[in-house]
Amino acid sequence: MKKRTINIGVTGLNAIDSPGPGVPVIRALRESTAFDVRIIGLSYEAMEPGIYMHDLVDKTYQLPLPSAGQQALLARLEYIHAQEKLDVIIPNFDAELFNFIQLANVLKSNYNINVFVPTLEQFEARQKVNLYEYGKKHGIDVPKSKTIFSVKDVYSLEQEFEFPYVIKGKFYDAIIVYSTDQAVAAFHRIASKWGLPIIIQEFVEGQEVNVTALGDGQGNLIGAVPMRKQYITDKGKAWSGISIDDDKMLQMAKKLIQSTKWRGGLELEIVRTDDEKYYLLEINPRFPAWVYLAVGCGQNHPEALVRMAMGETVAPFEKYDVGKMFVRYSYDMIVNLNEFEKISINGEL
């Protein structure tokens, strides 16, 4: 029997050393047993590799940068929808999520485009600047944190934080600092890239472990796979990892999704200390770039998300394979100049 075809717009097509989740999400969708897909890539820059992966992406359109605002995004999506009849959009960048969350209702009511994302309240509550309070509220250990707005504040931190501590940007980046001089330099480096405020976080030593998970918006955990990073790049990204059997991590994901009624994909970044304590470092409000490991372990989270976005009820996954590894690699594609020209000039390819 022929499967139905769903037209899905996917962002996050970048695949540099801090890769976006778009390409692995697309690979997961292409392996769906429930539906066929036509993938519409949504890019921000002409050098995003996913644009040129024609075996994965059927057509790509450039989007205006998130800073251009919701109306610019809506106008562009209206144009894309007229060409492609989008059924679902999966945004994969933290920085664009605010706009997509705000537009979700309009996209549904005016164009019947389904966007399965957290509510604005869920999105804001887990922001790095709020995470310490968020952990307290939901009974989860979070390293002590403080938000600062001026480099002057760095000089008074010694009274509250012991070295080393971590300086973090509001969206990305984290630098461990061992002295006030290093802290000042890190403050400027991150502030110039990601703006203010800056988050100061107590440094917790231990193994870096992560969970990729999916909530249905009703408080049910649809799927979760814990992973330990095996090889970490100088940007702190997992270049290889392995699925592990850790009930405490699964319980943390379940607790968070139950108590927040989280809607959509998310990633928990956790440190597990030698004495088996778990500290939540971050909640990323979308699938991680390693989400394809979950597919390899028997849980196709992107497929489940699309089914929920289309209004289906999805039963929670009950198991996953432990000891499955992912090993990332880089791959040089040869691209004809006329393709680069098309995406650069016309904004579509």
Binding site: M227, R228, D246
Partner: peptide
């Protein structure tokens, strides 16, 4: 109990991934 030991001498701890 959960430690996997293969005949080749490869040992895997599924709770830590080590």
């Amino acid at each position: 109990k959960n430690i996997a030991i293969s005949e080749s001498g490869f040992i895997f701890d599924p709770s830590t991934g080590n």
